[in-house]
Simulated assay, not measured.
Amino acid sequence: MATGGKQRDTRAERERVRVYQARRALHVEQSRRRTRDNLIAGIGGGLLILAVIGGQVAYFMVGPGAPVPTPSATPSATPTL
Results as ranks from 00 to 15, higher is better:
Arg16Met: 14
Arg24Pro: 01
Ser76Thr: 13
Arg32Leu: 05
Lys6Arg: 08
Thr78His: 10
Val19Pro: 02
Ile40Leu: 14
Ser76Ala: 15
Thr74Ala: 11
Gly44Asp: 06
Arg33Ser: 04
Ile40Lys: 06
Thr35Glu: 15
Thr70Asp: 04
Gly65Gln: 06
Gln7Glu: 14
Met61Gln: 05
Gly4Glu: 09
Arg34Ile: 04
Gly42Leu: 00
Ala77Glu: 07
Tyr20Arg: 09
Arg18Asn: 15
Ala51Asp: 07
Gln56Ile: 14
Val28Pro: 01
Ile49Phe: 12
Ala41Trp: 01
Val28Gly: 00
Ala77Ser: 09
Ser72Gly: 02
Arg24His: 11
Val62Thr: 07
Arg8Met: 14
Gly5Arg: 07
Met1Glu: 00
Pro64Ala: 12
Arg23Thr: 15
Gly55Asp: 02
Pro71Val: 07
Tyr20Trp: 12
Arg36Met: 08
Pro71Thr: 07
Leu50Lys: 11
Phe60Gly: 00
Pro67Trp: 01
Ala22His: 08
Ala25Thr: 11
Leu47Cys: 10
Tyr59Thr: 04
Ala12Glu: 12
Pro75Leu: 06
Arg16Glu: 15
Ala77Leu: 13
Tyr59Ser: 00
Tyr59Arg: 03
Arg23Asp: 15
Ser31Ile: 05
Asp37Ile: 02
Pro67His: 01
Val28Cys: 00
Ile53Met: 10
Leu47Tyr: 03
Met61Gly: 00
Arg32Asp: 02
Ile43Gly: 01
Gly46Met: 02
Thr3Ser: 09
Gly42Phe: 02
Thr3Met: 12
Asp9Trp: 07
Arg24Thr: 10
Arg14Val: 04
Gly63Tyr: 00
Met61Cys: 12
Thr35Gly: 06
Arg16Ser: 15
Thr70Lys: 07
Gly44Glu: 07
Gly44Ser: 06
Arg23Ser: 15
Phe60Val: 03
Met61Asn: 12
Ala77Gln: 09
Ala22Asp: 14
Gly63Leu: 08
Pro64Phe: 10
Arg8Tyr: 09
Thr70Ala: 10
Arg11Val: 13
Glu13Trp: 06
Arg24Cys: 14
Val68Cys: 03
Ala25Met: 10
Ala58Cys: 08
Gly4Lys: 06
Ile40Phe: 05
Leu81Arg: 07
Gln56Pro: 01
Gly55Ser: 12
Ala2Asn: 13
Val52Ser: 05
Thr74Lys: 12
Leu26Gln: 15
